Simulated scan of single mutants.
Amino acid sequence: MTRPELSPAVGGGGRTEAVLSRLQLMVTRKLDGLLQGDYAGLLPGPGSEAGESREYRPGDDVRRMDWPVTARTTMPHVRRTVADRELETWLAVDLSASLDFGTGQWLKRDVVVAAAAALAHLTVRGGNRIGAVVGTGGPAGDGGAGTVLRLPARNGRKEAQGLLRAIAGAPVRPGRSDLGALIDLLNRPPRRRGLAVVISDFLAPPEQWSRPVRKLRFRHDVLAIEVVDPRELELPDVGVLPVVDPETGELHEVQTADPRLRRRYAESAAAQRAAISTTLRGAGAAHLRLRTDRDWLLDMVRFVAAQRHARTRGTTR
Results as ranks from 00 to 15, higher is better:
1 M>N: 09
8 P>F: 10
11 G>C: 06
12 G>N: 08
15 R>W: 13
22 R>G: 06
24 Q>S: 15
28 T>D: 09
30 K>I: 08
31 L>K: 08
34 L>W: 12
35 L>P: 00
38 D>T: 13
42 L>N: 01
43 L>W: 09
47 G>A: 08
47 G>K: 13
48 S>K: 13
54 R>P: 01
55 E>R: 15
58 P>Y: 10
58 P>V: 05
61 D>P: 04
62 V>Y: 09
69 V>C: 08
69 V>P: 05
73 T>N: 06
84 D>H: 09
85 R>C: 02
86 E>Q: 14
95 L>K: 09
99 L>G: 03
111 V>P: 00
116 A>I: 02
120 A>M: 02
125 R>T: 02
129 R>M: 03
135 G>P: 00
153 A>V: 07
153 A>L: 07
156 G>I: 08
174 P>V: 06
177 S>N: 01
189 P>T: 07
191 R>D: 01
193 R>P: 04
194 G>T: 07
196 A>I: 09
207 E>W: 13
217 R>N: 05
217 R>Y: 09
221 D>T: 11
229 D>H: 11
231 R>V: 14
232 E>F: 13
239 G>R: 11
240 V>I: 14
246 P>K: 13
263 R>A: 13
275 A>H: 05
275 A>D: 00
277 S>H: 14
278 T>H: 11
286 A>I: 05
292 T>M: 04
305 A>I: 12
306 A>C: 06
306 A>N: 12
312 T>S: 15
